[in-house]
Computed example of a mutant assay.
Amino acid sequence: MSRIVFLLLPGVHLLDLAGPAQVFTTAADLGLPYTLDHIAEQELVTSAQGLPLVASRHWPELDPSDLIMVPGWRAPTLRAGPEPGPEPLERLRAHHTGGGTVASVCAGAAALGLAGLLDGRRCTTHHDLQDELAARFPRATVVRDVLFTTDDRVVTSAGIASGIDLALHLLSVRHGPALAAQVARNMVVYIRRNGHEPQAGAMLRHRSHLDDTVHRVQSLIDARFTEPLPLGVLAASAGVSERTLTRLFGRATGGLTPLRYQQALRLERAEHLISHGATRESAAREVGFDDARMLRRLRARTS
């Protein structure tokens, strides 16, 4: 069982909380072992929208498979907003030091900064707060105008609805893009993407088109991206010729071939495994490569 722990601060935005919470709840409804906890320094937290929320003051025992997420809150500036006390900040630090992942939505990035977790790392926040975040935490690299960033198990998102994108990305790298796509469909949300930013999941970047034929092929690749998938097999699954599939796929995904799409999924999954302690060789083999040489070539191509 993996825990998703939401650290709630006064004035928390409901969608910052509810969006990611719904993603992981939907994943649990589909049979994945997730449970959600809501922690605060006081039992009653008033949201930005006026709805009172009841939270626990007692932190559960966590292991590296668990996630701590800090939703954002309403305030004109980061400094004018609430700040977590010593215990939540130490919990954030200790969880990350122990191999766990921490995440934030919108202004929640400030809590990660106060815990020292943004130093030397890429991060983002709502576009209205990016300048202040950069000034307040000068050792961080603030990436502007993207939906989310990931850097060494520190994941930050832009704000409000982007928390859904962040949570779908975490599901994608942990359980595969097919599962993330299924959760998105069940939530009746469009698959989102960063567009030009490589931090976004490959599934999120290349699913925002309307070509049903390409979507069917992508769903097959999503589910079996670690296996050899010849172009002929993919074309037959969609009921089109290889030439037609190549043309449609490139038009829908901005120039990708089905093979390049599959390689992007493999690379993304391998990098996730490496960031969690796997060797390059073991990560390469788990995603379907014979050894790490192809993995190195793909990383060099995308750097």
Rank of each mutant, 00 (worst) to 15 (best):
T46Y: 13
E41D: 14
L62M: 10
T25D: 15
L53H: 07
W73E: 02
A94C: 02
R74A: 13
P71V: 09
A48D: 14
E83A: 15
I68E: 00
R93W: 12
D29I: 04
P88Q: 05
S56P: 01
E41G: 14
Q42T: 12
L51W: 12
A40K: 02
A28I: 11
P86R: 13
A28F: 06
H96N: 03
R74V: 09
D66A: 01
L51T: 14
L89A: 07
P84C: 01
H95M: 05
L62R: 03
I68R: 00
A48Q: 10
P71N: 12
E43K: 14
Q49E: 15
G99L: 01
L30H: 14
G50D: 12
R79C: 03
R91K: 15
L44S: 13
Q49V: 06
L89F: 12
S65M: 07
G50C: 08
I68Q: 00
R93A: 10
P52D: 11
A27L: 13
P52C: 05
G72A: 15
G85D: 02
M69V: 15
E61K: 09
G99V: 04
T25R: 09
R91S: 04
S65N: 12
L36P: 06
E43C: 03
A40P: 13
P64Q: 05
G85I: 02
G31T: 07
P60V: 02
R57W: 06
S47C: 06
S104P: 07
S56N: 06
M69E: 03
S56K: 05
E90W: 05
D29F: 12
R79P: 00
L53A: 08
P71Y: 10
L62P: 01
A80Q: 14
E61C: 03
A48C: 11
H58P: 00
A48M: 06
E43G: 11
T77M: 02
L36M: 11
H95Q: 01
P76C: 00
P71M: 08
S56D: 14
D66R: 04
G100V: 06
D37N: 07
R79S: 11
A80S: 11
S104Y: 10
E61R: 14
P60K: 04
G98W: 00
H96G: 01
H38G: 04
L53S: 10
D63A: 06
G98P: 01
M69A: 14
G100R: 03
P84R: 03
T46R: 15
G72T: 13
E43Q: 14
S104K: 08
D66F: 04
P64S: 13
E90F: 02
V54C: 10
E83C: 09
T26S: 10
L51F: 14
P88H: 07
S47F: 06
L62T: 03
R74M: 11
P60D: 03
D37E: 14
A27K: 03
D63L: 00
L51P: 08
L67D: 05
T46H: 15
V45A: 08
A27Y: 09
E83R: 15
